[in-house]
């Protein structure tokens, strides 16, 4: 009986993952590529600077959302702290890509935090494109665009709630 339940859960998981186009192997790949790109210390600060500058270059209006956390100057202490928080959140999501139950819990948590802020879909798209440029710059050849694009969709959908 227990095996049946496990199998059913597994089947459901596979169905969900393959429907979204971010399958188990892609999830593992994204996890390992992320841990290299995420790096640490000053490298991580530079990595996050690059991502946020790429976002604001595409959607300058988005800066207004970050006024309270020093968004006018991406190098300000408040904004560095904020951008590290965001990346820490993304780090949790990516780390949990292969633990569906906990991933769902974290996505709901982040969805609640973002709901009140009414973030337009194209800002998420700008985030995806920014990652799409900064990640390969950080990782060189060992970067799988499709896997990242597919798995980012899972994350963005979860935070947006649609």
């Amino acid at each position: 009986m227990k095996i049946l339940i496990v199998l059913a859960a597994l089947a459901a998981f596979v169905a969900v993952t393959s429907a979204s186009g971010c399958d188990k192997l892609q999830r593992l790949k994204v996890k390992s590529q992320w841990s290299r790109a995420y790096s640490s210390g000053h490298d991580r600060e530079d990595f996050s600077q690059a991502i946020w500058r790429a976002i604001f270059a595409q959607v300058p209006d988005a800066r207004a959302l970050f006024k309270r956390v020093g968004g006018d100057d991406t190098t300000s202490a408040d904004f560095v702290a904020h951008s590290m928080r965001v990346l820490a959140g993304l780090d949790i999501l990516i780390a949990l890509l292969d633990q569906p139950e906990a991933l769902q819990a974290e996505l709901s948590h982040l969805q609640k935090q973002h709901d009140a802020r009414h973030i337009p879909d194209n800002y998420f798209e700008a985030f995806r494109l920014a990652l799409g440029h900064v990640l390969p710059a950080q990782l060189g050849r060992c970067w799988d665009k499709t896997a990242w694009s597919d798995c980012f969709d899972v994350v963005a959908k979860g935070i947006k709630g649609h």
Partner: peptide
């Protein structure tokens, strides 16, 4: 469970963030 696991990661990631910012005192 998933909910508590996610929370545990939030706690340890906050520590990780602080440690990685140790040499940027203002941030």
């Amino acid at each position: 469970g998933g909910t508590f696991t996610a929370h545990c990661l939030r706690i340890i990631n906050a520590l990780d963030m602080a440690i990685n910012l140790l040499d940027n005192q203002d941030a």
